[in-house]
Design a protein around this nucleic acid. Sequence first.
DNA 1: CGGGGCCTTGAGGCAATTCAAATTATGTGG
DNA 2: CCACATAATTTGAATTGCCTCAAGGCCCCG
Lengths: 241, 241
Amino acid sequence: MPNTSTLDGFVQRMRLHSHVSDSDEAAILALPFLVIARDQFAAIMREGDETEFCFVVLSGMAERHRLDQNGGKQILAFYIAGDPLNLDHLFLDLADDDLRSVRATRLAAIRRGDLIALMAARRGVSEAALRIFAVDSSVSREWTVNVGQRDAETRIAHLLCELQVRGGNARGSERPWVVSQYNIAEATGLTPVHVNRTLKAMQRRGLLASGRSGISVGDWGRLEEVGGFDRRYLHLRANAD
Amino acid sequence: MPNTSTLDGFVQRMRLHSHVSDSDEAAILALPFLVIARDQFAAIMREGDETEFCFVVLSGMAERHRLDQNGGKQILAFYIAGDPLNLDHLFLDLADDDLRSVRATRLAAIRRGDLIALMAARRGVSEAALRIFAVDSSVSREWTVNVGQRDAETRIAHLLCELQVRGGNARGSERPWVVSQYNIAEATGLTPVHVNRTLKAMQRRGLLASGRSGISVGDWGRLEEVGGFDRRYLHLRANAD
DNA sequence: CGGGGCCTTGAGGCAATTCAAATTATGTGG
DNA sequence: CCACATAATTTGAATTGCCTCAAGGCCCCG
């Protein structure tokens, strides 16, 4: 279990994709940061804001979304403990998306300049951070495929598989998801009504199970199959150390 | 007009987002590269390939796509002259998407190690390249919004606006698009049949005009409006120098 | 015990798909 | 430069997956 008062989870996230040396780890843990607490559905950053901080989830969950002209809202990413929210802001001066908490959440706010300086000083940190950035862009493209090419059940199954695997439940534990059906709708480009109907149908067929604290995996193998889920796009290392 | 035998276009692309010094420009132009020629619809890289080269479009057009289980194909990006195709491959060892030419295309293939070395040696080059990477990921997210939230006409209008602006036709010249209706369908998550019907309807209303060499802008202002197009996500500098 | 999220269900409508085929461009070899 | 092959666009008819609108039920929490 990562220490949720430090950047330990950030290092663990890096280790999903990269080798991180002990000295690089120590340097990351020595980064100064502010702890930011947010209630459910609270803004972290807004489109157009100046990019001063990079955020890392300490506990809870956050999302990135973009609004379009017609009032539509598309969630573009979910961030769980250890995930950086906005590495892109290391290279851009203005935010192009909104960042929001999905539930009560604590974040580490690292000064952009501090992280840039550390990356300039330490090649290993730079590579690990940029690899996360590259992986996140791969995940983002998978979401485009999800909403562009797949029907409702497939979209939902795929999203739920991703959340399980990223959450460390490699084969789909019974641990329930903590996203609402509204969140699923906003992430998959469906209406909440249709998400509900589809989830119900998936429960009836045993793909999903309903516990008291939310929906959980019913049959992981079939869920992966239905979702067309192939975790290669997550670029997980074979042997995390 | 960029010199299509050199990396001049790549520097120009950088200058859409960043200031590039003369010495950085000279260093980029001095990078060794191979020229790769491809006919229409020819593979440049495949998912699973090892990442040895970074490609830059010298002339023509390329795309990135991903296939899903059900045979669906989602185009995730179009690349025009000056655009790097795969900066993500600087940080990953295996390709997660397919890269293909959209028509007859010439590419510069730069050894990954050469570009990494230049970026390590020159902060300005590193910043300019990473900023392109960040902008491309913003564009990618806009595509997710496009297929997730907008109806057929809006999606198509938005895509066409983006191609006009990125192609340097700031206010929508009469220069026709060079993508086929199939390409538009694959990029917008629609069927070619429906793309065709929608394009026809847009022509009837004067949004688009049909010349002999393809479809072109009819009414740029209304096209932007219909597409809900706001170019901020492209992160273009106010004054390109 | 009452209010506000969130989930659930029903009925009807429509945007986009599927399947099928005709027409128009594009290109190529004789 | 024409004949033929191939690709790209166009049109029609029928179907459907998902949306819209509307209302009711559950459960947590003050």
